[in-house]
């Protein structure tokens, strides 16, 4: 099979790293060759963060470039629009409807554009919108947003529910297991 490329994008502190780790674990147990490229350091302090996940028979480059992602999972609206050019023209983008103001917006030197996801859809991109924060709160904690989103992404992929469940069990601490399994389930069964 050809190598598939997924991008997980969001704002530092939103839990994108756990999401990519879960995805990596699930792909690994499916027997794929996997490469995951993470962001560490400066960009983590509330900056824009992106993680690349690639899998297939044999993966060479760990990074994704413009027009190459089969799927983008965006944790925040503005980040969905920022990284949209990295999507294949027939790719899928899943976007959390959450809005987090970047500092230039907070201090009034820039504006958070209106109708961000409408603009994304208007490009013809195949977009799934989701209010993952509400589902995470429903599952028990706003912090489970990342796992809700992983659930939505999982429903677009060819990996069985049981494999995901195992990956969550292997990655998440016991204390938060129930919460995360529930959050995953809400995301997985979400349809818009």
């Amino acid at each position: 099979m050809n190598t598939k490329s997924i991008m997980i994008v969001g704002v530092g502190g939103q839990g994108t790293l756990l999401a990519s780790r879960l995805l990596g674990a699930a792909l690994l147990s499916e027997g794929y060759d996997v490469k995951v490229s993470e962001v560490h350091g400066m960009s983590q302090r509330g900056g824009s963060v992106v993680t690349y996940v690639k899998y297939g028979e044999k993966v060479a480059s760990p990074i994704v470039q413009k027009g190459q992602a089969d799927l983008i999972l965006a944790f925040e609206q503005l980040e969905a629009a920022r990284w949209l050019p990295f999507l294949k023209t027939d790719g899928t983008i899943i976007a959390n409807t959450q809005q987090i103001d970047p500092m230039p917006v907070v201090i009034g030197t820039a504006e958070y554009p209106l109708g961000v996801l409408d603009a994304v859809r208007a490009t013809g991109a195949n977009l799934t919108e989701i209010d993952a924060l509400s589902l995470a709160v429903k599952a028990g904690s706003p912090k489970a947003v990342n796992v809700v989103l992983i659930g939505v992404m999982a429903s677009h992929m060819d990996i069985s529910y049981a494999v995901w469940e195992n990956a969550i069990r292997a990655t998440v601490p016991e204390k938060f297991l129930e919460l995360n399994l529930k959050a995953f389930e809400y995301g997985y069964h979400y349809s818009n």
Binding site: V11, G12, M42, S43, Q44, R45, G46, G47, S48, A60, S61, I63, Q65, K66, G67, Q68, L78, E79, A81, R82, L84, P85, F86, L87, K88, T89, P102, M103, P104, V105, A110, E111, Y112, P113, V116, A119, V120, A122, T123, G124, A125
Partner: peptide, 30 residues
Amino acid sequence: SQSLIAKVILGKEDAFVATDLDIPARPPVL
């Protein structure tokens, strides 16, 4: 990147779409 190499050596580029929004930067903060 793979794209830079494909562009220079093979003259190939991947198609992509973008919004026409003015997207504010998101610098790291304290």
